[in-house]
Amino acid sequence: MFEDKSFRVVVNIAGWLAMVFLVFPVILTVVVSFNGSQFIEFPPTSFSLDWYANISSIHRIGSATLISLGIGLMAAGLATVFAIGAALVLVRYPLPAKPVLTAFLLSPVTLPTVAIGIALIQFFIMLDVAFTWYSLVFGHIVLIVAYPIRTIIASLTLSDTSLEEAASSLGAGRLTVFRTITLPQLRPGLISGFLFAFLISFDNYPISIFLVRGELTTMPIEVFNYISQNLDPTPAAFSTLYIVIVSIVIMLAERRYGIISLAVGK
């Protein structure tokens, strides 16, 4: 695009250095997770898989991960179902005050996450439902619902309404059109919206920390606690596993549904 030598050199150097910055901590975490030392050190001195075996010593890591999974799946699932209807209305149907409604529904993303936590814990204490699993699910939905709404709106804007008109002219009823034409076109938006909603819920700390107590605990809270109380590289082993799994999920989602092109536009 810009055929100019000095420009090309500067962009290449600056761009690749920035990419190194982006992946540097990840690569280092992976390296450290295989190091034998009791402490974090680089360059590594010996090879060991001890820290992977030691993951189980993170307090309640198993049950906490299961709870995070359950909360994440429920919150992301409900948020995505809510978001389908909402996005359809916001893109396709006549309704007064649409910009205001859209801004309202998308606003939780721009608020301090701690504010949502503080507001909700007071509210749940008032209703006497604090520290229940469902109040945690509700709290997470508030935070994550904006993501599927956004991605589904993006999918809808890209989708072609004439396909639906063609289907109904061929004799399909409203529900059939929705099921056979609209929904398949929305699939990339649904998948990436659900995926990000789930990952954000799964990773959330600032809201969960206010809404959990006792047996109700989540993965990020337990990992955080372990990191703040121990100096050994066990979290590095856990992080490596986490990053590997997330990478596989993202790559599969990209290969099957092209979530990247949806996020940046064609």
Binding site: P25, V223, Y242
Partner: peptide
């Protein structure tokens, strides 16, 4: 995208390592 999807706690831990 992968770094966007990786846990914040894990990414911060990475900086503790660095």
């Amino acid at each position: 995208f992968i770094s966007l999807a990786s846990s914040l706690i894990i990414r911060n831990y990475g900086w503790l390592v660095v």
